[in-house]
Every structure is written in C-alpha cells, then in structure tokens.
C-alpha cells in the first residue's frame, strides 16, 4: 500500500504535497481536517439483488449487493443463519488493482466490514433459520470498489449497511414449504430483513500529529497511522482495526472522541438518505 514503486507520477505528486498542506491545517481539496467529502448514497441500484447500494465518497466509489442461498447451519450455531462478507477491488479501481485472487488488503477490508456488521448484531440471524439444525439462509454481502480514492473502509461499510437496510429477504417459513429451493428461492415472498442495529465506521488518519477524517488515497499513504472504529447506534464501540502505523496511548483516546462525534453525523446522513433504524 505504501510502496511508492507501484504508484503513478500523479499519485506521488499528490502524496508529496499532503504534509505540506496539513502543516498549515489545510487539505489539498480545501476540506477541514475533520470534514467528510461529499457522500452520495443510492439504494436499489441492482434490481437482481435482494438489496443493493451505490456509495460515492468523493472519488471513491463502492457498490454492495445482497444475496441469499440456502445451506446447512454451523454445528455450534444450529439456530442461526449464516453471514458471509466478500469484498473485492474491481480492476477498474486503480492502476495497481489487478484481477486475480483477493489480496491481503482486500481480505482485511472484507473482514473489517464483516466484523462491524456481525459484532453490532445488526441482523437478527435467528430469523434466517428454515429448519433448526438443518437448513438456514446464507446471507451474502458482496461489495466492490469501482474507483479507489481512499477511505475504503468507511465507504464499504456505508454501502453494506445501506444495502442491508433496504433488503427484503425470502420469508423462511415460505422457504420451508418449497420442495426444490435453490431455483425457486428468488420467487418466494419477501419480507424486510430483521434489523437490530446500524453500525457506522469512521476512519481517522494521523499526519504530522494531526487527526484527519476521511483520508483520500494520498493522505492514507502519507499517514503515520490509520485507525477504523465502528460504533453501534447506542454509541458502544463494536469493532476496531489499526489498519497501519502506531499510536500513543493518549492519541487513541483523542481519536475516539473525534470518531464519536463524526459517527453521529454519518448515522444521521444514512438515516435521512436510506431510512431504517
């Protein structure tokens, strides 16, 4: 990620300038240090999926889609459905994003998004059971980065959450009545997904000892540390990931204060654009 050998001239020129701006408490795009870029959220963009969302965060573009299949529950959770999150960069995203098996960065991103949704208990997985111990619904969250200009965690989380909030899923009682489910699953009566919480992730970068909200790609590369924090609707912390770098103890708590503020702002935005909760 920080390897400049794989960067283009334009990227390196932007990276070289980041700290020059930050020193003056300014950013290249004119934003305040604690300001998000323009956020666009559109739901229901892919009608073939059970739920979907398109999110742009400045020039970062993410699409998430929700699908269901039937499957066997895990033996330790016979009365719970299964949640699977898979995220990938599409090769359209950037000069360095190439087709192929998921990279460690893509897997980390998927797992960070997955953890936020899972640990907030956003979805009541017990409502995804068809026959306890035998048959449950598998919920797939697939998201793709179409264009990468940084802060993919926040963007992917917004896309996944917005898609889930607008998802209607096959009524498990009706699925139980099916004989050959796989082919007919999409025709089963659909009901809103049982939503219990709405997790929100805010990522902060540290550059020259200053805290930067919603870092762009050059800011991420120039940053000394990057921390993603996910909150539940009751302002509990439900997932964290130090994506890179090191933090002083006091920095951690200063960041948490900023995140708590920003998290509210983001949540209001999602609720106003998508509804739910």
């Amino acid at each position: 990620m920080r390897d400049l050998r794989k960067r283009t001239l334009s990227d390196i020129l932007r990276i070289k300038q980041v700290s020059k701006f930050i020193r003056e408490n300014k950013r290249m795009d004119g934003r305040k240090l604690d300001e998000y870029r323009d956020i666009e959220i559109k739901t229901g963009v892919v009608k073939k999926a059970y739920g979907s969302a398109y999110v742009s965060l400045g020039d970062t573009i993410v699409i998430a889609g929700i699908h269901f299949e039937t499957g066997t529950p895990f033996s330790d959770t016979p009365d719970q459905g299964i949640l699977i999150t898979e995220g990938e960069f599409l090769p359209t995203a950037s000069f360095y994003a190439e087709p192929g098996p998921p990279t460690e960065e893509e897997i980390e991103l998927s797992r960070v998004v997955d953890r936020g949704i899972r640990e907030s208990e956003m979805i009541d997985l017990s409502k995804l059971v068809i026959t306890p111990g035998e048959k449950v619904l598998k919920l797939f969250i697939d998201f793709n980065i179409l264009n990468d200009d940084g802060n993919l965690v926040d963007a992917a989380m917004l896309a996944a959450v917005s898609a889930l909030l607008t998802t209607k899923y096959p009524n498990p009682e009706k699925v139980a009545e099916l004989e050959n489910d796989r082919a007919e699953l999409k025709d089963v009566e659909r009901i809103p997904l049982p939503i219990r919480d709405i997790p929100m992730t805010v990522t902060i970068g540290i550059i020259n000892n200053r805290y930067i909200v919603d870092p762009t790609l050059p800011e991420e590369i120039a940053a000394d540390a990057l921390l993603s924090v996910t909150h539940t609707k009751n302002d509990e912390i439900c997932a964290m990931q130090l994506l890179r770098g090191e933090l002083d103890y006091n920095q951690l708590f200063e960041i948490l204060n900023i995140v708590l503020e920003k998290n509210k702002e983001l949540r209001e935005l999602v609720l106003s654009k998508v509804g739910g909760g």
Partner: peptide, 18 residues
C-alpha cells in the same frame, strides 16, 4: 481484456471467480 460479472449482477449469486 477481462469481461467479468459482479456477484450481485444476476438473480442467483455468481461466484466472484471467473
């Protein structure tokens, strides 16, 4: 040239693998 379909592009989930 790569032609690729997103997992959510069809009414049944498509594996991201080509």
């Amino acid at each position: 040239c790569r032609y690729h379909m997103a997992p959510y592009s069809t009414s049944e989930r498509k594996s991201p693998k080509p």
